[in-house]
Design a protein around this nucleic acid. Structure first.
Lengths: 337, 337
DNA sequence: TTGTAGGCGTTATCAA
DNA sequence: TTGATAACGCCTACAA
């Protein structure tokens, strides 16, 4: 109705508006905001005052379009609500924040098709870099990624031939180390309590490989659905106790191990005397559990931190010298096995 | 050197390139991709073929700039590696994916200053909506948000005066319900094992309020750092056992409760006979723990799902009828108290 | 140190 | 049903 008070459309202030308020050109305002060292201090002050006065908030869409740098990193994980990945995600987010990037987080599930589609959609955001979980990708995905020539870090696994950069560790070796431990401790009748993802499968392969070479072939394995849950640990252990007589149960994660231990104890049996239990991950409850869980420790935060650093360095031209980072792992002997 | 093979700069194909390949205008290609129902089927086919041939990937920065809709939702949480929030985040992500949005995930920590800065930076991405954890924000943050006139959902808390929309429950009532339960069960010497965030403080207030009205004033409280960890639970319980004689320990989360229970058991005491323990959250191990943990169940996924739905509906003009969603909670009596 | 011109890749709008 | 034109808001490149 009235053309006085609300005649101004509620358009967000632009660089131009700030420039007008400051009596400068929009280019100078842009410089004052992004590269203040190239602008006279007094001018910078003027700009800052004008920004405050106008309530200006930069438009990163426009900025990214013009500069061809989005300051955006896309992160693809199989799941968020997974004790293994959350610490890595948090570390990525923290490190990226320090470097001035934002994190676009996507859940791919555990199928390749989904991941390929997701990444294609993600690329439309023109991220400056991408973090992919794992090293097994569909050929479509690989083609799209390489074609986009965007820096990529694969995490949580190891291969001599990554798409680009990589931060992880060898799951096969984890399995082997676990087998070595079992054999050294004299366990002969192992049972497996396992989730069905690719990395867990590699650990199983390494484990069974060494066991087989030592005369223990095809140990019984009970599979449980992802994500690994305490409940699945209990149920899986219950099934194992029905089908066989084991001296040790190897679990694909500490979460399962904790559930398994409770199940054993609830039957009046003792861990490790009646049946031992081994986990994976060294989650925060592993050391304090009763009995303390023997497990494989992996620095999940370092994975995220290094991944973010590698990407940011590459993007900013401080070309990373090492492209493949093996963060290793270490076996932690505690009470449960 | 040679100007034949590599003379073409590796510029990503644009709408224009697709249009040329299809013998159409870029506008028609844009329509075929976004609103195919407005384009002749045969033309759409041509476009799809040309897209495939050129390897075209849309540029959402340009699209967002032109259309003023980024298809981006910013989510701000205090922490990611927190058992309480991950399920909510995952649910938001899942629901947003279905609706065609991407999630920008930011970690604010537990200080208001950080959150205000983060949101300002986030707004530069021109998100179509924002999810904020909690209802306590700095006045700066509120001003910026309202000024940007972007849809907001606050989650995990309840207030009659949200910034905009809200999905959560009353922490004070959770505390009251817990107190009611304690009193009904005849517990008279409660101790508290608590983290120091705002929402936990509200639960404590509700709890102490009811207790005080029943003659139990200022129960001893041991505070532990965030995030709530199994280890903190054990340590906190150890301190409690040193400073007093309690018949029940109320914990601000199941994670602490689980640690507390183990600590009690490791001393040869029994839960709940020697000391009872109550948790909060009904995390996945609560029901299967030995003893099963008496706790308050909150549907963490629903919070995320409803928040995402509210936002998407609002953005797409299907104006949400209810702006404040109280998802409630329910007390779950099990064995530990 | 500051300013001008032009383009980044897409979509809204209007015309055909 | 399709196309031409003009933004969208910023930054690169160059000039002054």
């Amino acid at each position: 109705m009235s053309k006085t008070s609300r005649s101004v459309p509620p358009r967000a202030p632009t660089l131009e508006d700030v420039a007008r308020a400051a009596g400068l050109s929009s280019m100078t305002v842009s410089r004052a905001l992004n590269t203040p060292q190239l602008v006279r201090p007094k001018t910078v002050e003027k700009v800052i005052a004008a920004v405050k006065a106008t309530g200006y908030i930069p438009n990163a869409l426009a900025g990214g379009l013009a500069s061809r740098r989005s300051k955006l990193i896309a992160v693809v994980v199989p799941q968020i609500n997974n004790n293994m990945f959350v610490d890595t995600i948090q570390a990525i987010s923290d490190e990226l924040a320090v470097r001035g990037y934002h994190m676009l987080l996507c859940v791919a599930g555990y199928t390749q098709q989904t991941e390929a589609e997701l990444v294609a959609a993600l690329l439309s955001r023109r991220p400056d870099g991408i973090v992919l979980t794992g090293i097994h990708h569909s050929t479509d995905l690989k083609k799209v990624i390489l074609n986009a020539s965007v820096p990529v870090v694969e995490i949580w696994d190891l291969t001599p031939t990554p798409l680009d950069m990589l931060v992880g560790f060898s799951h096969e070796k984890v399995g082997q180390a676990t087998a070595d431990y079992l054999l050294r401790k004299g366990y002969r009748r192992p049972g497996l309590l396992w989730t069905v993802d690719k990395r867990a499968a590699q650990r199983k392969a390494g484990l069974c490989d060494v066991l087989a070479r030592n005369g223990i072939t095809e140990p019984v394995s009970v599979d449980v659905a992802l994500p690994a849950r305490f409940t699945s640990g209990r149920e899986g252990m219950a099934r194992l106790l029905e089908v066989g007589d084991f001296d040790v149960i190897v679990c694909s994660s500490d979460t399962l191990a904790q559930g398994a231990i409770i199940e054993v104890q609830s039957r009046g049996l003792r861990v490790p005397q009646d049946v031992a239990v081994i986990g994976f991950g060294d989650l925060d409850f592993a050391a304090g559990n009763q009995p303390a869980i023997t497990t494989v420790s992996v620095d999940r935060q370092i994975i995220g931190q290094r991944a973010a650093t590698l990407l940011a360095d590459r993007i900013e031209g401080n070309s990373a010298n090492e492209q493949i980072v093996d963060i290793g792992f270490h076996f932690v002997e505690r009470e449960s096995a």
